[in-house]
Amino acid sequence: MHPLHQWPAAQRRQIIGVFTDIDDTLTTDGAITADALQALADLKAAGLTVIPITGRPIGWCEPFMAGTQGPAWPVDAMVAENGAVAFVHEKGPQPASNLREPLSKLHQQDAAMRATNQACMQAIAAQVEAEVPGVRLSRDSAGRETDLAFDYAEFARLSPDTVQQVLAVLQRAGMQTTVSSIHIHGCFGNFNKWQGACWIARELLRRDLTEELDRWVFVGDSGNDQAMFEHFTHSVGVANIARFVPQLAHLPGYVTTAERGAGFAEVARAILQARGL
């Protein structure tokens, strides 16, 4: 990883869109800070596409996208559950001044498949909690539609060995797994943030992300961001990625000096400064 200031200005100037993780990338201590929220707004005002992509459940995302619990986040879409489902504005991407338009929910799996998977996941969740003492579903699980999430570092404090035990149970059940900065995830389906980013770019923007990767950047901080770090030409880790580096097979190209929301704001400034803004 190189310091962010080494990212060439000519490359930053070509950026047209930003994908970003949410937890511990946009948020600090569980909430988005004023500097990160302003950074989103500044990127949107400059004409960039801005799409958070998270392991959080789609139900958790709705208040931020709709602005029902504070200001609506100035974003074009919000992709949840590691790429499986998204909220978009019903009338398409909106300017920051018109973010209270109705929302539409998009899924990659049809309703019948989701129902079948949900029944299986209930049984697997019970199996995990029975086999691995002290493990519980994440507190945001009521809003989940396509995956399971177990808390290991949001409110719980589980050891690395316990995390591996949970992953083993999920994998034996045939689930795809990943670990974020706070949760252990399992799902049925080929879902990860990279696959989800390509999907939403097609669905929302009618663009093929793979053909213009030199014009996009991803910002993240942990294990479930690895697919993005692997595929994106331009990727940045906020400084708190340092605690995960020994566990990551794929690292971002650059790293900020600041952590969490302040680190994201640092990335936004770097992009906008290259444009003379």
Results as ranks from 00 to 15, higher is better:
residue 3 P to A: 13
residue 5 H to E: 15
residue 6 Q to V: 11
residue 8 P to R: 05
residue 13 R to K: 13
residue 15 I to H: 00
residue 17 G to W: 00
residue 20 T to W: 09
residue 21 D to F: 02
residue 24 D to C: 09
residue 28 T to V: 12
residue 28 T to I: 12
residue 29 D to F: 15
residue 32 I to E: 13
residue 33 T to V: 14
residue 39 A to L: 09
residue 40 L to A: 05
residue 43 L to Y: 07
residue 47 G to N: 06
residue 51 I to Q: 01
residue 54 T to Q: 06
residue 56 R to E: 15
residue 64 F to M: 05
residue 66 A to C: 09
residue 66 A to K: 05
residue 68 T to D: 08
residue 69 Q to P: 07
residue 73 W to G: 01
residue 74 P to C: 08
residue 77 A to C: 12
residue 79 V to W: 11
residue 85 V to P: 00
residue 85 V to I: 10
residue 85 V to L: 08
residue 86 A to L: 07
residue 91 K to P: 07
residue 93 P to T: 02
residue 98 N to I: 09
residue 98 N to V: 05
residue 99 L to Y: 10
residue 100 R to G: 07
residue 106 L to W: 14
residue 108 Q to P: 12
residue 108 Q to T: 05
residue 109 Q to I: 04
residue 109 Q to R: 13
residue 112 A to M: 13
residue 113 M to Y: 14
residue 114 R to A: 06
residue 118 Q to E: 11
residue 119 A to Y: 14
residue 119 A to S: 04
residue 123 A to R: 14
residue 124 I to S: 07
residue 125 A to K: 01
residue 126 A to C: 09
residue 126 A to R: 11
residue 126 A to D: 14
residue 129 E to I: 01
residue 131 E to W: 12
residue 134 G to Q: 10
residue 135 V to K: 01
residue 137 L to E: 12
residue 139 R to H: 15
residue 142 A to N: 13
residue 147 D to A: 05
residue 147 D to V: 02
residue 148 L to E: 04
residue 148 L to H: 06
residue 148 L to N: 05
residue 150 F to D: 01
residue 153 A to M: 08
residue 156 A to F: 15
residue 162 T to P: 14
residue 169 V to F: 10
residue 171 Q to D: 11
residue 173 A to S: 15
residue 175 M to T: 02
residue 178 T to W: 13
residue 179 V to Q: 03
residue 180 S to T: 04
residue 185 H to S: 04
residue 185 H to P: 03
residue 192 N to G: 06
residue 192 N to S: 10
residue 197 A to Q: 02
residue 198 C to Y: 00
residue 200 I to R: 00
residue 203 E to T: 03
residue 205 L to C: 02
residue 207 R to M: 05
residue 209 L to V: 00
residue 210 T to M: 00
residue 212 E to T: 02
residue 212 E to W: 07
residue 215 R to A: 01
residue 218 F to A: 04
residue 223 G to I: 01
residue 223 G to F: 01
residue 223 G to N: 01
residue 224 N to T: 04
residue 225 D to G: 07
residue 237 G to C: 03
residue 240 N to R: 06
residue 240 N to V: 03
residue 242 A to C: 15
residue 243 R to D: 15
residue 243 R to S: 12
residue 243 R to K: 11
residue 245 V to L: 11
residue 245 V to N: 08
residue 246 P to S: 10
residue 247 Q to W: 15
residue 248 L to R: 08
residue 250 H to V: 04
residue 251 L to I: 04
residue 254 Y to M: 04
residue 256 T to H: 03
residue 259 E to D: 15
residue 267 V to T: 00
residue 269 R to K: 15
residue 270 A to Y: 12
residue 271 I to G: 02
residue 271 I to E: 06
residue 272 L to N: 06
residue 273 Q to M: 14
residue 277 L to T: 01
